[in-house]
């Protein structure tokens, strides 16, 4: 089963929840942790894996063979991103603007453009105890993270539990992270900002047809609005993590919150059982078959 932890608003506790779930699950089954928050991956700070291998992650970009180019300009015409410019029979490529769609090398009538690779980040593989740990790290200055997220997800085994730590937000990187997952845990905090961004994430997951539930982090007595929203929308509240300074302090040191008090281990074990009881989603299985 593949579970993604997402949030809308940043800093609500995605990584906290994801790492603790992986930790409690590892006691009884095979777990893979995929850190798909490739702009700022933090899972490793809490789970402290030892990495044994790193691979370069690349995207496709055009490489022009000047001797074969007649300067017809078809490549410039097809490109929607301004990434390839044909000027006076010279072709300039701007790799950072390229989306790797392949248009230019497909349209080139002289086969003067070849597909080549450009590195955008690293994928590291390792173990955190019994947990298989895979992390994507986007190179500084790279704008587009979805291709890297896609490659991190390709490292997921077909069996066992897969926990995906998703980036914050509600756009392309999140869409890529939750694609083909069985269930999404949305972590929120009971504040106006948390609720507003939770609603955006819920809207997105409904459009994508994903199953999801909510974890309220830093729960305090003012959480009424969040609970009421979930109730009105028929959304499961899967767990509440209390607003506990000890948790904030343990997290600040880079420790798992399971270690703060035995009750937390129980909380995450119950959360995991509740999510796993939903079983794999048929839709996501169909999606995997298609691809």
């Amino acid at each position: 089963m593949k579970i993604a932890i997402a949030s809308g608003k940043g800093g609500t506790g995605k990584t906290c929840v994801a790492t603790s779930l992986a930790f409690v699950a590892a006691a009884s089954r095979r777990v893979t942790y995929l850190d798909c928050d490739v702009e700022e991956p933090n899972g490793a700070i809490l789970l402290k894996p030892s990495f044994e291998e790193a691979r370069s992650a690349t995207v496709s970009v055009p490489r022009v063979e000047p001797a074969l180019c007649t300067g017809c300009g078809k490549c410039t015409e097809v490109c929607q991103y301004g990434a390839i410019l044909s000027l006076n029979r010279r072709v300039l490529v701007f790799p950072h603007l390229c989306h790797g769609c392949g248009g230019c090398w497909l349209v080139c009538p002289n086969r003067a453009i070849r597909e080549s690779a450009r590195e955008i980040g690293q994928i590291s593989f390792g173990w955190a105890g019994e947990i298989r740990f895979v992390q994507g790290l986007l190179n500084l200055g790279e704008a587009m993270s979805p291709p890297l997220i896609c490659q991190v997800k390709a490292a997921a085994p077909s069996a066992g539990l897969v926990i995906i730590d998703s980036p914050p937000g509600t756009t392309c990187p999140v869409i890529e992270s939750v694609r083909d997952v069985d269930y999404v845990i949305l972590v929120t905090e009971p504040t106006p900002f948390g609720l507003h961004d939770l609603k955006m994430a819920v809207d997105l997951l409904r459009v994508l047809g994903r199953r999801f539930g909510v974890v309220i982090n830093r729960a305090r007595e003012t959480e009424g609005l969040t609970s009421r929203y979930c109730e009105e929308e028929g959304i499961d509240i899967l767990a509440r993590i209390p607003d506990d300074r000890r948790v904030a302090e343990a997290y600040s040191r880079g420790e798992l919150i399971c270690g703060v008090a035995p009750a937390y281990e129980g909380l995450f074990a119950a959360l995991l059982a509740r999510v796993e009881s939903q079983g794999p989603s048929e839709r996501s299985l169909a999606g995997v078959m298609e691809r």
């Binding site: 702009e39 980036p167 990187p173």
Partner: peptide
């Protein structure tokens, strides 16, 4: 701004 280092931040 937004969190991260990707296109919205740039």
């Amino acid at each position: 701004g937004s969190p991260g280092i990707g296109c919205p931040v740039i």
